[in-house]
Design a protein around this nucleic acid. Sequence first.
DNA 1: CTGAAAGCGCTTACAG
DNA 2: CTGAAAGCGCTTACAG
Lengths: 336, 336
Amino acid sequence: MLRRLHAGTFNLQDIARRAGVSPITVSRVINKPEMVSEATRSRVLGVIQEMGFVLNRLASSFSRASSRIVGTVAPPIINSGIAEQVQGMSDVFSRSDYQLLVSPGDLSAENEERQIMNILGWQPAGFILQAFPESDAMRETLKLRQLPVVEISELVGKEPIDCLVGVSNYEAARRMTLFLAELGYERISFMGAHSHGNDRAMRRTLGYRAAMAELARQAVAVVGPLHPSYAAGGLRKILEIAPNTEVVFCASDTFAIATIQECRRRGLRVPEDLAVAGFGDLDLAPLIVPAITTVRVDRYRMGRIAAETLLRRIAGDASLERIQDVGFSIVRRESA
Amino acid sequence: MLRRLHAGTFNLQDIARRAGVSPITVSRVINKPEMVSEATRSRVLGVIQEMGFVLNRLASSFSRASSRIVGTVAPPIINSGIAEQVQGMSDVFSRSDYQLLVSPGDLSAENEERQIMNILGWQPAGFILQAFPESDAMRETLKLRQLPVVEISELVGKEPIDCLVGVSNYEAARRMTLFLAELGYERISFMGAHSHGNDRAMRRTLGYRAAMAELARQAVAVVGPLHPSYAAGGLRKILEIAPNTEVVFCASDTFAIATIQECRRRGLRVPEDLAVAGFGDLDLAPLIVPAITTVRVDRYRMGRIAAETLLRRIAGDASLERIQDVGFSIVRRESA
DNA sequence: CTGAAAGCGCTTACAG
DNA sequence: CTGAAAGCGCTTACAG
């Protein structure tokens, strides 16, 4: 009973036979070429080329002590920056021997745990955690498996499971607030997202509050669901509480864009009548009019760094710092 | 020499022993529960629960005639709609037993071919092709393997490899042009992307031209690289050729947004002095001011349909239509 | 530098 | 409805 997964394709044995060597030698030509003599290597490579042989990565990963799969869960918040992050990882892994397995998360902890178990079934060599909310059960599961894990998250939070790559949303929001003060704005209000299970949102709000305390000014913060449709109501609330607000610092560019639109509706010029600042530096932040002044966190780079860190972690690199701060920058444009 | 991939985890045998059945029975409880008696099934499920057993999907897929992996290549054009498309697929597959393997493509055919070979190494049960340009060699490779393939692409193009899910960019651009004419615009100009290796761009330009011919009007079309920075130059060129242009139909929302910004710079009110229409319905299309009138192609739904089609194709569904048109709609907002 | 043997954890095909 | 045997295509560990 000969079963070939895909008829018409060859396996290691076929190549070995054709090249007059043992299957192990072919395996070594692919995986550890330096262990094979020049002559043998080039002969085997010739046969591989000639027969269009593609290594069965399924069998390869299966038979290894550690598979060549790396997992992550990406919540379906398109435009949230997760896409860039995944792209960064993906670019790193595609130059390595590892395949990134992306499972779709959603914002419920139960589903996310299911997704993780699902990926765990693929016996990954490592895991990148970029979704939230993270359930504690999940964190425990990952810890228990002793799997190399890199978390991408708010820097100042719980103890990392393993390695952490992050940015301080607190510091970023604090610095933006101080920056707005330096620009001469006196009355700085804040539009944030519910911190309910959302570390970053909470830290941004706290950063704003901290800066206002440093400045000895009255903080005016409203928070709502992280959706552009909240901006109209949020702005109304801000202007009720603090009618003389000079600038609204929005905890996301999406809020900022929607706020600018709402200003237009109300006949307020931005930034002359009311300035607006954002957070995140979306692709469109420089394109809309007025271009948005915002906090830039390089998500693509975060993804890359997370992937590189995981690779080093899997390789057992001892010189690895457990916590890495990738930083942020403030981009001044026209809206504030 | 006992090697366990992950210490502390159990395998089918462990469960079988504990439940007092054979490994095959455990396998059946998981894969074909209807073949197992109620009593045995619940006993085995109990043990699985109790021991926190996770099936080794690597071994499972490896030993099957057909793996539970499905591959796709996604080019890194964030915001191009590919993200929504992948999300749609992902949502379908996550409810199935299949794992979606996403490999990053780029816009070079050589690299894309490498990515596809890479995925083929994972012995996928099927493939979704959503990237372009597609090299002919690649198409041949896929055809040769007789792998179930679903292409997402321009509807009117080359003969599909296997199944095709698409939209007619030609028809969409044609209809938008006619729609603008119905709104009363006389002089309709077009800003498109280079059609160099880009089917959709070419079909959109052709659709515009066809509509203008039907209307017996002079077509004014400029094309440039698909990047917002082209809009300023593109608009200048349009206004040189046709200074009395009343509306610019942009072949992408990104162009439309950048064009609106350029209009502001020039002191042109949109839509009063110059109207602008887009294509694609980006998330931000309704949010910017003025909100963009555009062509909506539901990319998320396209992804879902592609995934469902592939699943049916893998299952050998004979009633499957080879070509599916998912259609488009025109969304009237403020910019035109 | 190269190879023969064993095994990874499942599923398939056959049998009862 | 249940099981014993064989095998999927590789890699590992040992030997020479």
